[in-house]
Design a binder for these strands. Structure first.
Length: 223
DNA sequence: ACGTGATCATCT
DNA sequence: AGATGATCACGT
């Protein structure tokens, strides 16, 4: 995927560019950028996100920061059905499993990334050919006081387990809106984590994800 | 291995 | 059908 050359200078410009994509298909956008399109996403899971990043001028890279640092905006493409139902959870960031003493919600990466999110709904029904999937209207979201509260509660509960060496006791069922799930090439990958008695051990890397019902509320209330 | 972009595949 | 745990590709 080619790297974006220009980045929007303001949120207004970003939103205008996002709104101009609405109604286009992935095929049209890929053709415009002369990007090859895979048959499906089985081996190209991040393809849609990369295409949208290219169109909007997101700064490429794998840094744990917002996509538009100068605007304070995180970009998320979200697969939805024909009827607008959210089809997948939303990855936020990897979870810190060591050196977390003193870490608070307010200075966590999850909190920072979710300060302001530009949601780009894209049809994700597997029976719609990739080229025919339509891009929806963008939604710029800032968490409400209640949403922030829910996120903080879940984050603190999960981080408490991690700090106590109980990360292996946390499942995706914990948390009302934010959940912890594996995030790695496969289940054999290991990374350092806090173990019994505060000693270092190893475990499968985890990531924070937004649950679909939470994301659905965000998209619905603003549509 | 880590962090980004996420969706897949299976089980309930 | 929906959610959980697992997985795929890429740049560094």
């Amino acid at each position: 995927m080619k790297k974006a050359l220009n980045s929007p200078a303001s949120i207004d410009e970003l939103m205008q560019r996002a709104e101009s994509m609405a109604g286009l298909t992935l095929g049209q956008l890929a053709n415009y950028h002369e990007i090859e399109m895979p048959k499906d996403l089985k081996r190209h899971k991040g393809w849609v996100g990369q295409l949208i990043e290219l169109e909007l001028g997101a700064l490429a890279g794998s840094k744990p920061e917002q996509d538009f640092v100068h605007l304070g905006v995180e970009l998320k493409t979200i697969p939805v059905s024909r009827t607008g139902k959210v089809l997948e959870t939303t990855y936020v960031t990897v979870a810190p499993l060591t050196d977390i003493q003193g870490l608070t919600w307010q200075n966590s990466v999850v909190c920072h990334k979710l300060q302001q999110v530009l949601w780009i709904p894209v049809q994700g029904d597997r029976d719609i050919p990739l080229a025919h999937r339509q891009i929806g209207s963008p939604i710029l979201w800032r968490p409400s006081a209640e949403e922030s509260y829910l996120l903080q509660q879940d984050w603190e509960e999960i981080m408490e387990f991690i700090s106590m060496g109980q990360v292996n006791k946390v499942t995706a069922r914990h948390g009302e809106v934010l959940q912890l799930r594996p995030k790695a090439a496969n289940s054999q990958v290991l990374t350092d984590s806090i173990g019994k008695d505060g000693q270092l051990t190893q475990t499968n890397p985890r990531g924070f994800y937004l649950k679909t019902q939470f994301t659905q509320r965000i998209l619905s209330q603003l549509l």
